[in-house]
């Protein structure tokens, strides 16, 4: 045990296996629709139980591996339900309902991610999930939506499917404001936003190397190069901070809340900035629904609604001056 920020073999193996599954089941270019079958495959893979206690189906990995896995999820625009499930399982366990925790972790019970809009619960998908995890600022609540009357609607220029429920019609299961679970939720959201930022960077770089104008690849022009460099700097900044925060939270360090809040604050800004630049680098085709660039932008808008809001300035910095 010392300081080492390299991924080890075990971590690379699980990430490679996850990537293979994601490339098959979650191509970025896919039409909207019922993702439940795909999400079931992630559950089968053990994605939701990864870092849980052994008696809840955990496989001995830690929050750090789980965060790295969610970066990959972000790259493939995996629906927010994949983020809600592992958080909901933790809440169920905290409420003392280990059976429910196991059922969520193994994918037997599906969970949607939702937010409150006035007196309505808005879930960020059209899944027929039985439960929803409600992100309500610094509070998380697990509710049953199976018997509530949901109304689906499209969002973000027909780029997202949403379902709205009268919140009073849902069945409340229990809530949590545990700092540890809130931090986990913020880390997973940040991880997916990083995945978006990285994928947007890679897509832009790949297009800039291929698309030719004025007799050369547009990536040979400094204006395009500098957009791409900015995307690389932003992604590196967030990625470094996310590692720092995930390790701090896994090891219950004093600065875990500070590091997590920093990552969660930066994540949507970085993801949105990279998504915007990715569209710009693509030029005309970037504005079309056919290209993938806009998908990253829209997923970033969805994810940034989940959690966050920690009072960054009220948390003690690990670098406070001594005098």
């Amino acid at each position: 045990m010392a300081c080492d920020l390299n991924q080890n073999d075990e971590q690379r193996q699980i990430l490679d296996a996850a990537t293979a599954l994601l490339e098959e089941s979650f191509p970025v270019s896919r039409s909207l629709g019922d993702d439940q079958e795909r999400i079931d495959k992630l559950a089968e893979f053990g994605a939701f139980a990864l870092a849980l206690d052994d008696d809840l189906g955990g496989t001995g990995f830690t929050l750090v591996e789980e965060v790295l896995l969610h970066v990959r999820f972000g790259r493939h625009i995996v629906p927010a339900g994949a983020l809600a499930a592992p958080v909901a399982a933790r809440i169920a366990a905290e409420l003392g309902d280990n059976d429910l925790a196991r059922e969520i972790a193994t994918g037997q019970i599906a969970v949607s991610a939702g937010i409150l809009a006035g007196d309505r619960l808005r879930t960020l998908d059209d899944t027929k999930a039985k439960l929803a995890l409600v992100f309500d600022r610094r509070r998380l609540e697990l509710v049953e939506i199976a018997n509530a009357d949901g109304e689906t609607a499209t969002g973000l220029g027909q780029g997202a499917e949403l379902t709205e429920f009268p919140f009073v019609a849902t069945t409340r299961i229990g809530a949590s404001n545990s700092a540890s679970i809130l931090n986990v939720a913020d880390l997973l959201v940040s991880a997916q936003l990083l995945g978006i930022a990285e994928a947007a960077r890679d897509l832009a770089v790949s297009y800039a190397g291929m698309r030719r104008q004025f007799g050369k690849p547009i990536g040979a022009f400094q204006a395009i190069k500098h957009h791409c460099a900015n995307m690389a700097i932003s992604a590196e900044m967030l990625s470094a901070q996310l590692d720092m925060a995930a390790i701090a939270q896994r090891d219950s360090r004093d600065d875990a809340a500070f590091q997590t809040a920093a990552a969660r604050l930066l994540a949507p800004r970085v993801a949105l900035a990279n998504a915007r630049l990715c569209i710009q680098v693509h030029g005309g085709i970037g504005f079309s629904a056919e290209a993938d660039a806009h998908r990253f932008l829209k997923q970033a808008h969805l994810l940034r609604q989940l959690g966050g809001g920690a009072a960054m300035l009220d948390l003690a910095s690990p670098m406070a001056p001594h005098r």
Partner: peptide
């Protein structure tokens, strides 16, 4: 708050260059 987060991230990047 944003500057504080960015400065935390610069420290994290510094750790990366070392480790």
């Amino acid at each position: 708050a944003e500057l504080r987060a960015e400065t935390a991230a610069l420290r994290a990047m510094t750790y990366r260059t070392l480790f």
